[in-house]
């Protein structure tokens, strides 16, 4: 819509610099077209997160990994004890595969610069490229190594994403870690939800290259007209008013994109941890598959992850198939 001239520039509505200062670096990229900012974030969700059962985690003598090397060491340690480190499920009805795309997006940010990530979103960097292969290689090492995933990575495409973590909360746990976005807590078993702060721990994706980027999403507000008084009032309320988002935050439905937002409004410590992980992030990027054309972002990238993880197709085949599916016009 912005490219067709249907939206008003954000600067006509609010002070862009003050918005820029109060949100995560890179958030406005998703609302920027040809160097002009059109939208401002009004809510946020984050995806570069790992979850664990606190009791099981400490009973196994594990500590929160800060780097990929820490994570590798954790995986080795768990396996040495005859256990499985990760739970993973990517079954989601006709949307099966999206959970896999989140891994790749996260690793794309971790192994490349944000600029490469942006070029990947616009297909200026192809799937079949050394940059994307780095992300897939890390995914392969972490997920597809034998014994790393409970039930085997091959079967992950048959495991429902909203139940995959159940074995993690058992007394004799099936796994110790789950990687999912902040929305996953609402799917946790009732007894876990009742004592979320006591039972569940969360940390951001262990750093690969020294940076700590955060992948996520959010809602953006933009105006259609540039000089309507009332529209400006609404935009200012949505974007700048500190009272906006309080009710939403209390319900736990979404996070505020603002650094100045009072985290006392969130319903529990777990949510505050999530927000803290997001606020210390070096850079924020929107979910890549959500920004790619539908033929890729909600089709061939999903099936590519299913084919690759289940072992139906080799990496070369997967990458070229996705590239070929990119719309030509």
């Amino acid at each position: 819509m912005a490219t067709k001239g249907k939206l008003a520039e954000l600067s006509t509505q609010v002070d862009v610099a003050s918005v820029q200062k109060d949100i995560l670096p890179g958030f406005l990229n998703a609302a920027t077209v040809n160097g002009k900012v059109y939208g401002a974030p009004i809510s946020m969700n984050v995806k570069s997160l790992y979850w664990y059962d606190k009791a099981n985690f400490s009973a196994a003598g594990l500590t929160v990994p800060k780097t990929q090397a820490d994570l590798d060491a954790l995986i080795t340690k768990v396996k040495a004890n005859g256990k499985t480190p990760l739970c993973y499920g990517m079954e989601s009805g006709s949307a099966t595969g999206w959970a896999g795309t989140d891994w790749i997006e996260d690793y794309m940010l971790q192994t490349n610069t944000p600029e490469v990530y942006d070029k990947w979103v616009s297909h200026d960097v192809k799937f079949d490229s050394p940059e994307v292969r780095k992300a897939f290689d890390l995914y392969n090492k972490t997920i597809m190594t034998d014994g790393n995933v409970f039930g085997g990575a091959k079967n992950a495409a048959s495991v429902t994403f909203s139940k995959a973590f159940n074995p993690m909360f058992e007394k004799d746990p099936g796994c110790y870690l789950l990687k999912q976005g902040n929305f996953i807590t609402s799917f946790f078993p009732k007894d876990v939800l009742a004592n979320l702060d006591q039972r569940v721990g969360v940390f951001a994706t262990p750093s690969v290259n020294g940076q700590n980027p955060m992948e996520g999403g959010g809602d953006l507000a933009a105006a259609f007209t540039s000089n309507d008084k009332n529209v400006k009032k609404v935009m200012n309320f949505l974007v700048n008013d500190p009272t906006f988002g309080v009710e939403i935050a209390k319900s736990g439905a979404a996070l505020s994109p603002h650094k100045s937002f009072d985290s006392a409004n969130y319903p529990n410590d777990v949510t505050r941890e999530v927000v803290k992980a997001a606020q210390v992030a070096s850079v924020f990027r929107f979910d890549a598959s959500d920004q790619m054309p539908g033929a890729v972002g909600s089709k061939s990238f999903w099936t590519g992850m299913v084919d690759y993880t289940s072992g139906t197709k080799k990496l070369d085949d997967v990458l070229t198939t996705i590239d070929k599916s990119w719309p030509t016009s």
Binding site: A295, K299, S310
Partner: peptide, 24 residues
């Protein structure tokens, strides 16, 4: 509803639906 054509189970009807509504 069962596999959405994953794991080599696709059929013409489903391929049509995906080409039309997912790939546009």
């Amino acid at each position: 509803a069962m596999t959405n054509g994953n794991f080599d189970t696709d059929v013409i009807g489903n391929a049509f639906f995906n080409a039309m509504y997912f790939s546009g």
